[in-house]
Amino acid sequence: MPPTPHPGEGDAHEALDPDAVSSRPPPRVRPVVERTTPTAGTEAAPVDKMRAEGLRAWFGAHEALHGITLPVRANAVTAIIGPSGCGKSTFVRCCNRMHEVVPGARVAGSVLLGDTDVYDRRVNPVRLRRLVGMVFQKPNPFPTMSIRDNVLAGLRLNGLRPSDPAAVVERALRQAALWDEVKDVLPRSGASLSGGQQQRLCIARALALEPEVLLMDEPCSALDPVATAKIEELLHELRTRYCIVIVTHNMQQAARVADYTAFLFQGDLVEYDRTDVLFTRPRERRTEDYITGRFG
């Protein structure tokens, strides 16, 4: 039975719903070319932290993802690349069920976190998002909170009281490579920082919750090259500890920071492989055209 997406109206004034109940028809897994095993597998077999299975997503009647099957490896950076509108952002927003907070948006298929399907009817999306953190395109620190409170915001929003908040703040800010720059101005408003610092503050905010997966939706697109370099450097350090998914429209960035890369085009997964393989020996014609700059 094909799911019938209801016509959604993207009214800007409609309330966001953090735990919209996703009425979910049985997934219709499209015949996706399984291309999920990296070719060169000399090391120990990588562990999948997350795995999308036949993931489909709609905005109203528009189908943005046509059945994506993609693993996300533990302790590695996975980059999602593709031209604008290919569904990259939608894909990561499906991983922590942020997609469905937009009125009229729907999802089918599944995303496994460990062995739990996050789209299981019994899964509470609000809880899920503590485990799967997210950094947005535009830095969005909370303007009413100090830098310190911004870092603690995730804990406080979840009603958690760490025994040593100062330590949590320091650790998260150190992990986000921001500590040295802000340690003397912690009570200042988060809005007083520069754009790059704000984005690292948002990363610290996400890391303070110690997520298992960190989703980054074009985190550098609003930043200047220096700030971008800082964040890329940071990703190198974080990859040992976290499982990171980064969406980027910048292929050089993907090549620099990612262990694995997936190329999405018009809502389909075209190719997924180890980054060095995908960029040097792509198997698909469309991938090659894209990475050599012939379109997109």
Partner: peptide, 10 residues
């Protein structure tokens, strides 16, 4: 959205 992404309820 930032709040929701941190696992906050409404």
């Amino acid at each position: 959205e930032a709040c929701f992404a941190l696992g906050a309820d409404r």
